[in-house]
């Protein structure tokens, strides 16, 4: 533990002025930011209770208040909300963990080993994900259509295919975030472990990864959110089969608003707001890792 934290912990009670100086303004900033962050959500929430689903009515309490929109998403065999929910959470979690694993391994190599082609790899990773994604879905469709002829189980309608394709994006910005973080871990720590006879795997699993927990937690969360909201690719892979039970939340909910003129924003808003819950829960859970970072690890290591 570093000293500053201990000093603060030792003080039993703060004076009001000190509380204001140290913590009060932080609460103020936080509350202000939260108001800004939640402000649009208030209107989404109000639209979700509006039987007419008028997002732009901008009335805090809608004229036609009711639970119709929630009923529409909860009891509708064509739109099995809870199955979508489960699919989305399972796929997103699996993807987040896989992305983290692949990203952490690659970043370890990029941060700790000097091998041929390292700089090229780093630059490629940076540059290649700048390619506008909107069209790559055409390419992936063609690719999957070809795989579908030979290995249908690994193609349309397969969550496994979806996760594998997502994993192709693991070496992207995430790898850079992790590598940046690994770089800040002093190399002396693993040098000395090496002298003690630790293998590269031991250094990776026992030293680097525990120290990098905050960054890993961030990556998991980012990937999780990204997958939860991913629409284009998921709809191509999971939407082709036409089984509503295959869909995720982002793809399923879209169906409420993809009519030509009759877009049902009410149920969409209801469904989307509820979809934020797992994200918040996951982050609440991950936060103990976010703060348990370098300092905590360093005393052990």
């Amino acid at each position: 533990m570093t000293t500053i934290e201990q000093v603060i912990v030792k003080e039993k009670r703060m004076t009001t002025s000190r509380w204001l100086r140290v913590l009060g303004w932080r609460h103020l900033v936080a509350i202000f930011s939260i108001s800004f962050a939640l402000f649009p959500l208030v209107w989404m929430a109000s639209a979700s209770f509006d039987q007419l689903g008028l997002v732009s009515a901008q009335k805090l309490i809608p004229d036609n208040i009711g639970l119709d929109n929630y009923r529409k998403i909860f009891n509708n065999p064509e739109a099995p909300y809870f199955i979508w929910y489960r699919n989305a959470v399972v796929i997103s979690l699996a993807n987040a963990l896989l992305q983290m694993a692949i990203g952490a391994c690659a970043s370890y190599a990029l941060s700790r080993f000097r091998f041929q082609g390292r700089k090229v790899t780093l630059l490629t990773i940076l540059v290649v994900q700048m390619f506008p994604q909107l069209l790559s879905v055409t390419a992936l469709f063609v690719l999957l259509a070809e795989i579908n002829q030979s290995i249908p189980t690994l193609s349309f309608g397969s969550p496994l295919a979806l996760i594998i394709i997502f994993a192709g994006g693991a070496l992207g910005v995430n790898a850079w975030i992790l590598k940046g973080f690994f770089d800040t871990i002093p190399t002396e720590i693993d040098e000395s472990a090496k002298v003690d006879g630790a293998s590269h795997a031991q250094i990776f699993f026992k030293i680097i990864l525990p120290l990098a927990l905050p960054a890993l937690a961030v990556i998991v969360l980012l990937s999780f959110i990204g997958t939860m909201n991913e629409f284009v690719l998921t709809s191509v892979i999971m939407g082709v089969t036409g089984d509503p039970n295959d869909l995720t939340l982002a793809v399923g909910l879209q169906r409420f608003i993809d009519g030509q003129y009759d877009q049902q924003w009410g149920p969409f808003a209801a469904g989307a707001l509820l979809a934020a819950i797992p994200v918040m829960l996951l982050f609440l859970f991950l936060q103990k890792y976010v703060v348990s970072g370098l300092t905590a690890g360093a005393t052990k290591g």
Partner: peptide, 23 residues
């Protein structure tokens, strides 16, 4: 008779691209 639900906005383009692929 199998009825498959598709996104209205994508159905036309999907038929054009997925049809010839046998999908």
């Amino acid at each position: 008779v199998t009825v498959v639900v598709k996104d209205f906005g994508k159905m036309r383009d999907d038929l054009i691209t997925a049809g010839p692929k046998g999908l």
